[in-house]
């Protein structure tokens, strides 16, 4: 794909991915075919900040995990009052990373 297009994509979407994975994404994007651009530019990526806010407000109900698509973990969190409160605390600090990894998985389907 054109370098300029890739650069634009990276610039507008860099907050959705882990910083150490960005270079890999850039290289893959340049390598892949132009026909995939339509797909890639329309992927719905989840905003880590939004998920963090949800996690702080409704973390002990597991809503953050449901939003990420981890239904099983969400149910686990809901049934145990947020993992007896401990899991809730841990998730406040790790949900952003989890979101970025989820986004990475999503884009990876199209990159390879």
């Amino acid at each position: 794909m054109e370098a300029q297009k890739v650069e634009m994509f990276i610039m507008s979407n860099s907050k959705f991915f882990e910083s150490h994975q960005i270079n890999g994404i850039r290289e893959r994007l340049i390598a892949i075919d132009d026909s995939k651009w339509a797909m890639i530019s329309t992927i719905q990526l989840k905003d880590p900040t939004t998920i963090l806010i949800v996690s702080i407000l409704a973390g002990s109900l597991g809503i953050d995990r449901f939003m990420l698509g981890d239904t099983g973990l969400g149910i686990g969190k809901l049934l145990t009052c947020g993992g007896l409160g401990i899991w809730t605390i841990v998730d406040w600090f790790s949900i952003q990373k989890a979101t970025r990894e989820k986004n990475m998985q999503k884009i990876q389907q199209f990159l390879y």
């Binding site: 882990e18 910083s19 150490h20 605390i89 406040w92 600090f93 790790s94 952003q96 990373k97």
Partner: peptide
């Protein structure tokens, strides 16, 4: 280390502080 790596590493300390206060 990258921006997000630093964030996660820092979070591990920050979280232990919050967990001390909560529990």
């Amino acid at each position: 280390p990258g921006e997000h790596e630093a964030e996660t590493a820092s979070n591990s300390y920050l979280m232990s502080l919050i967990a001390i206060i909560m529990g």
